[in-house]
């Protein structure tokens, strides 16, 4: 109980974290209960009602096959959040470990790992993802793999720089003097003190990943129709932009809403987790 109260009292002092976490909670609830919230079956075709304007029956109207756009947007939350969160998790764990190890070891090993990361970073992210997807074929799992690979170097850099700040602390030296093994120093001594920037980076990354995933779907290399996906909806709505301009606006609004929510949360977390603030919490 006291833990929850601390969380709330902390959030109250950081408005962007407050707004961010409320919005993200809404998104998560929508994603989890999507089938119950959606008023229609998102896959059900209804040729007689193509391009219906917004009405009580269809809040956001219908698309070129007469499917309910609102239901498709709601179900699309699942795909987007699913991809966004799993890519972020993979990046944070893999990138975090790579960065921490690299920063802690230093010297040649550090040089080698970071140059490899630089090479990965040198490719434009979306291009690299396209390359991977055209090799592996399109599926949700492959989208996750592709975006993760492009995202790991950035997380690794963040983790490395935060590790370098902690590495010089005397408690690390004390652990070495005590005869601790490298993995213990890395995971038990270093990680808890270096994890904040990684968390912040991850929360901002979610929005970015959702954008990338949508772009891939839009280009036809991500999720495949008829899966309800925001990028896909934009892709197919593009052709009817003059007949039904609102069709393209809804998914864009959804993407913008999600990205802003996670960015707000990330900004707020950065303020809260700032080491200078820790003493006050």
């Amino acid at each position: 109980m006291s833990c929850i109260r601390t969380v709330f009292s902390t959030l109250r002092r950081y408005p962007s974290a407050m707004v961010g976490s409320v919005l993200v909670s809404i998104l998560l609830i929508v994603a989890i209960f999507a089938p119950f919230i959606a008023p229609h079956d998102p896959l059900k075709l209804n040729p007689r009602e193509r391009f219906a304007p917004p009405s009580v029956e269809h809040v956001m109207g219908t698309d070129e096959y007469g499917r309910d756009v609102f239901s498709r947007i709601i179900l699309g939350t699942r795909t987007s959040l699913g991809i966004g969160l799993s890519v972020t998790l993979v990046c944070a764990v893999a990138g975090g470990l790579i960065g921490l190890t690299s920063g802690y070891l230093g010297g040649r090993a550090d040089e080698l790992i970071m140059r490899a990361m630089d090479i990965l970073m040198a490719f434009p992210g979306i291009l690299f993802a396209l390359l991977i997807l055209s090799m592996l074929g399109s599926s949700i799992v492959n989208v996750i793999v592709a975006i993760s690979i492009t995202g790991i170097p950035k997380t690794a850099r963040v983790a490395r720089s935060s590790c370098l700040n902690v590495r010089g602390e005397e408690f690390i030296e004390a652990a070495k003097a005590r005869g601790e093994r490298t993995w213990y120093i890395l995971l038990v001594e270093l990680l808890p003190n270096a994890v904040q920037p990684i968390i912040v980076e991850a929360s901002i990354k979610v929005g970015f990943v959702i954008l990338t995933a949508s772009s891939l779907s839009f280009l036809g290399l991500g999720t495949q129709p008829p899966t309800p996906d925001w990028g896909l909806i934009i892709g197919s709505a593009r052709e009817y932009i003059f007949e039904a301009p609102m069709l393209i606006v809804w998914p864009i609004l959804a993407i913008a809403f999600t990205t802003i929510s996670f960015n707000l949360l990330g900004d707020g977390l950065r303020d809260i987790l700032d080491p200078r603030e820790l003493g006050r919490v």
Partner: peptide, 20 residues
């Protein structure tokens, strides 16, 4: 040897892990 030879550092703020 690690057991026999130990060290105490200058700054107690930095020599104790703040998370532990």
């Amino acid at each position: 040897l690690c057991k026999s030879i130990q060290i105490v550092f200058q700054s107690p703020d930095s020599s104790l892990n703040p998370r532990h």
